[in-house]
Every structure is written in C-alpha cells, then in structure tokens.
C-alpha cells in the first residue's frame, strides 16, 4: 500500500490536502482534469465515497469544478488559487507557531530563530 493516512483527522480532508499541495507544487495545473472518483480511489486505496466527499469539499471551496459528463477540473480562476496559497501558508505557520508556543518559546525567540534559519539556508544555497 502506497499511501497511509494519519488517524487524527478525516481521510477526506487529508486527501483534499494532498490535492491542494499538488496544485501548489504545480503538479496539477489550472484546468487540469482530476482522476475520476473510482481512479482516485484505486490510486490512493480509499473508499470511493471518501473521494466523492473530497471532491465535494474542494468544489465547495471552488478549487475544482465539475463539468457535467466530463469530469472534475482544477479551477482556472487565479484569484481562488492565490487565496488558497495564502490560506495554506497561514495554516502551516499557525501550526508551527502553536508548536513553538507549546514548547514555551516567546514571539521574539521565534522571529529571531526563523530569520536566522532562513539566512543560513540562503547562505548555504549561495555557496
């Protein structure tokens, strides 16, 4: 089995997440056709009902649209994709920050640490 899912959150949302990330990385381009529900289910070894729900959720967020009789496509609306990009960034940052808080770091420490990390990384790639 190629894919596994975390047990703490619903599979449909984890699957939606994966699709979103694929879009961000450019593996799925605006206007690209997503696999059919059945194909997606087979690819990821999940229940077709789950995939159905994932597509419904993405559709609700206007990230994909279903064209009658043709299938489900990634939206070509750049505004929505930019918005999603922003939203996922914020989600990830808030996760990170929450983790830092849990370990008892203060805001300045986080800021300094993050800047330093990014600087060093930049330095690494420049050499």
């Amino acid at each position: 089995m190629t894919d596994t899912f975390q047990s703490s959150s619903p599979i449909y949302s984890q699957l939606a997440d994966r699709i979103n990330r694929k879009i961000l990385r450019g593996e799925l381009q605006p206007g690209d056709k997503l696999p059919s529900v059945r194909e997606m289910a087979i690819q990821s070894n999940v229940n077709p009902n789950t995939v159905q729900r994932t597509y419904r959720e993405l559709e609700g967020m206007n990230i994909v649209e279903t064209k009658r009789g043709q299938g489900t496509f990634v939206t070509e609306n750049q505004e929505i994709l930019t918005e999603m990009r922003e939203r996922l960034k914020e989600e990830e940052i808030s996760q990170f920050v929450k983790g830092m808080y849990d370990m008892g770091y203060a805001d300045e420490e986080i800021e300094v640490g993050l800047n330093k990390f990014l600087q060093e990384k930049k330095g690494d790639s420049e050499q």
């Binding site: 047990s7 703490s8 959150s9 619903p10 599979i11 449909y12 789950t50 729900r53």
Partner: peptide, 15 residues
C-alpha cells in the same frame, strides 16, 4: 462511521 470517528474523537479504527 469511520470519518465521523476521526472528526469527533480524532481516532482511527485501530485506536
């Protein structure tokens, strides 16, 4: 319901 269990109790079947 498997998904409900994950949403409401953050648990998989195994757990």
């Amino acid at each position: 319901n498997v998904e409900q269990l994950r949403t409401e109790q953050n648990m998989s079947i195994v757990e």
